[in-house]
């Protein structure tokens, strides 16, 4: 592959799945992989390293947003031309990385966002879909004015230029909305790409969904 692509995987207690995830990505293309072990107490970093990923270790847990930002800083310092955010729990298929990168290679957009709603290939739990994801989409539309079909999907690809301009200050889970805010505020061109997410276990539960919204509101209140 002529481009340097870094795959960034934040991981917290994912020793069971991280090895298979890293290996499947390595099989799917010439990617460089960095796993950010966000203060796990299990074998996450050892397993990831053995599977062939670079591993950065947060000595204490700082949240998924913080881990992504750490991975981004590392990738940018190591000649990344393109960056892909990927989940550690095996929900994402490694084959979709290429699909996400395609519009960026062609120069059609600077950011490609994975969406579970563009086609119906993902079987979402209905409660999660209507109580969390749909309201989150509405929330995003109200606050950042972006008409995206899926706001909390962990799969996205960015160009070096776009990643370098984004400031991710949300350490915890609300970073997904923050990325959208940054795209909107900095007029970064984006496109949505249909992706399939397989639910082995649930992603963010209902309480976490509430926590995201609480985080966002607090942030808007105190740091306008």
């Amino acid at each position: 592959m002529e481009h340097t692509v870094w795959i960034i995987i934040p991981a917290y207690h994912e020793a069971k799945t991280i090895g298979a995830v890293v290996r499947s990505i390595r099989r799917s293309g010439e990617y460089r992989i960095v796993v950010v072990d966000d203060g796990s107490t299990d074998a996450t970093s050892r397993v990831a390293l053995r599977a062939g990923a670079h591993v950065l270790v947060h000595v204490v847990n700082r949240g998924q947003g913080a881990a992504l930002a750490t991975g981004t800083a590392y990738a940018l310092a190591h000649a990344a031309e393109y960056l892909v955010h990927f989940d550690a729990d095996g929900q994402h298929a490694a084959e979709t990385i290429n699909v996400l990168l395609e519009p960026l290679f062609k120069g059609k957009a600077e950011v490609a966002l994975g969406s579970r709603f563009l086609d119906n290939s993902t079987n979402l739990p209905p409660l999660k879909k209507w109580l969390i994801l749909k309201p989150a989409i509405l929330f995003t539309r109200l606050f950042s004015g972006m008409k995206v079909t899926d706001t909390h999907n962990g799969l996205r690809a960015l160009t070096r230029h776009a990643a370098g301009r984004m400031v991710l200050a949300h350490d915890r889970m609300a970073h997904a909305s923050e990325i959208l805010d940054e795209i909107s505020a900095k007029h970064i061109s984006y496109t949505e790409v249909p992706v399939t997410v397989t639910y082995h276990t649930r992603g963010q539960g209902f309480l976490q969904g509430c926590a995201i919204i609480k985080d966002l509101f607090l942030h808007k209140l105190f740091y306008p």
Binding site: L56, V59, A66, T70, A73, D171, F222
Partner: peptide, 23 residues
């Protein structure tokens, strides 16, 4: 508190990036 959290994250990040484990 928010400022402290931010400082802590920066510290943790710096430490992580300075000591990468490379396969």
């Amino acid at each position: 508190l928010h400022e402290l959290e931010k400082t802590l994250t920066e510290l943790v990040r710096k430490q992580a990036i300075e000591h990468p484990k490379i396969p």
